[in-house]
Amino acid sequence: MRLTAITAAAVLATGAAFADTVAPGDVQFGEYGEVATSLSGMDGDADAGRVIFSSRSKGNCAACHAVAQLPDVAFQGEVGPELTWTGEARTAEELRGIVSNAKMTFPDTVMPAFYKTTGFTRPGDGYTGKAATGELSPILSAQEIEDVVAFLLTLQES
């Protein structure tokens, strides 16, 4: 009986965390593109964020951004700004907005929106007629956005 009560409590706690998740279409951006509150309702995990940032199959952030604190990540990019001191230069709210949808802060950026499901230009219709229809899944989940933000905040000089 005790194990059942513990399991039920864990399920309820997990459900409460998901209940606080902000859907991609409900993200509230501030005047300068910042997002004031956690998208998942939970703190990010910097170690998980490092993996997402570095992973070619997930965030793939290192394809465009160089980070001195990641000497083990090969072929870091030069398309976007170097992020070595990002944790000193940006707040969590600014980073959350930029990672979610950088165009809300930098309208002319080529950085993809990692937490967006609608409003995409779909050139496949003009070329092949095979563009996806309807909403797409976001590239990163709400918690993965929080994890990447937590990692970026660790990028400081010392």
Score class of each variant (00 low, 15 high):
88 E>Q: 14
102 A>N: 06
110 V>I: 10
97 G>N: 09
88 E>F: 05
90 R>Q: 10
88 E>P: 03
91 T>M: 13
112 P>D: 07
81 P>Y: 01
87 G>S: 10
89 A>T: 13
82 E>L: 05
83 L>N: 00
106 F>D: 09
96 R>P: 03
98 I>G: 02
92 A>V: 01
83 L>T: 06
97 G>P: 12
111 M>A: 14
110 V>L: 11
93 E>R: 13
81 P>Q: 12
103 K>T: 15
93 E>K: 11
108 D>M: 09
87 G>N: 00
99 V>E: 04
88 E>N: 08
82 E>G: 11
100 S>T: 15
80 G>L: 10
92 A>M: 02
119 G>N: 09
106 F>V: 14
84 T>A: 04
119 G>A: 10
106 F>A: 09
104 M>P: 03
105 T>F: 09
87 G>Y: 02
103 K>S: 14
93 E>P: 07
85 W>N: 15
106 F>R: 07
119 G>H: 02
87 G>I: 04
100 S>N: 10
88 E>M: 10
99 V>G: 02
108 D>Y: 11
84 T>V: 06
95 L>C: 11
83 L>W: 03
102 A>S: 15
82 E>D: 15
86 T>I: 13
83 L>R: 04
100 S>K: 05
116 K>V: 04
98 I>D: 01
80 G>F: 09
89 A>Y: 12
109 T>D: 03
107 P>Q: 13
95 L>H: 04
114 F>I: 00
100 S>L: 11
97 G>Q: 05
110 V>S: 13
82 E>M: 07
88 E>K: 04
92 A>E: 12
115 Y>V: 03
115 Y>N: 01
104 M>V: 11
81 P>T: 09
105 T>S: 15
117 T>Y: 00
104 M>D: 03
112 P>R: 05
91 T>L: 12
95 L>N: 04
118 T>R: 07
117 T>V: 07
113 A>D: 00
94 E>V: 00
104 M>G: 01
103 K>V: 14
114 F>W: 13
89 A>S: 13
117 T>P: 00
102 A>V: 06
84 T>P: 13
84 T>R: 05
109 T>A: 06
110 V>Y: 10
112 P>I: 09
107 P>R: 08
81 P>M: 12
87 G>H: 02
92 A>D: 10
97 G>L: 11
91 T>S: 15
95 L>R: 03
84 T>I: 01
82 E>Q: 14
90 R>V: 03
102 A>E: 11
116 K>D: 00
114 F>M: 11
102 A>G: 14
102 A>Q: 05
100 S>F: 12
82 E>H: 10
102 A>I: 12
101 N>L: 07
83 L>I: 07
106 F>S: 11
118 T>P: 00
87 G>T: 08
99 V>D: 01
109 T>H: 02
96 R>A: 02
109 T>I: 06
84 T>M: 04
100 S>G: 07
86 T>P: 01
82 E>P: 08
